[in-house]
Amino acid sequence: MSNKITNRQIVCEVLSEHAKTDKNIVVLCSDSRGSASLAPFAKEFPEQFVEVGIAEQDLVGIAAGLAKMGKKAYAASPASFLSTRSYEQAKVDCAYSNTNVKLIGISGGVSYGALGMSHHSAQDIAAMSSIPNMRVYLPSDRFQTRCLFEALLKDEKPAYIRLGRNAVEDTYEEGNVPFEMDRATAVCEGSDALIVACGEMVKPAKDAAALLRQQGISAAVLDMYCVKPLDVNGLLDAAKGKKVVVTVEEHSPFGGLGSMVSQAIGASDPKKVINLALPDAPVITGTSKEVFDYYGLNAEGIAKAVKKNL
């Protein structure tokens, strides 16, 4: 792997750059500044940093109170806890009360690997997407993460953003990052199949398309970093004329990207949609790479699923 910079480090960079001139940016952590890579922010901007201790409900409630007063609140805590322990605060204090709180779920999905199911967040997309007025974003690489946070800083609505723990290989190239807020990004074009992925699964999807190309199969890849609001028009355009759509996500098979893509395709352009996801069970022990390989959430597994269903 060439890239060593994590997406969470980029978040710290972007927030720090803006916090110099925008004193309303406030970052909150629940004893999570280290794991969120936000310690440099806390050090540089102590007046704009709030530590709440290991108390996720307090974290989100306080963030909402700050936001109500005009602050731009960025609350970072492990996705596993943030999306469950403080779910009701996300629903009532952020989404329902419409406060400018950005919930940053760090170490998302199976990032924590061998720490087990308590630390995995394979339900966060489903949980957060089903809250009215809550948006859900899973950026794929460090370049897209920067674009996303630059865009989020400009709006005043709540959102949940899931980030992985480890550095991921670049999907895009520095200086050439196609990005439009709430519009899926076409990673590569193709004519036979469409692969739709989000978060860390975008790079393996891109690699799968390259493998398939070698075998004479043309697959398009769509980066649906905006899981909610799902870019339905972009999806339907990309799916047009394809024989199969394969979705890939680091999430439960229920209520995530696969469910939402299937719903949209089923309603407007019915065709076979295959959902690749984690199992509806505690995942096998291992690093996230070992886990992905085991369940076929890698380039080979995605390519195999496309080929089998063409």
Partner: peptide, 30 residues
């Protein structure tokens, strides 16, 4: 809070104090 005079939505218990802490903290910051 779609009604004038109401700052935050509530209903589920145990939400008000953390939210009020956030508001009071913002008043201190500013």
């Amino acid at each position: 809070n779609k009604l004038p005079g109401i700052e935050m939505n509530s209903g589920s218990l145990g939400h008000g104090l953390p939210v009020a802490v956030g508001m009071a903290l913002a008043q201190k910051m500013d």
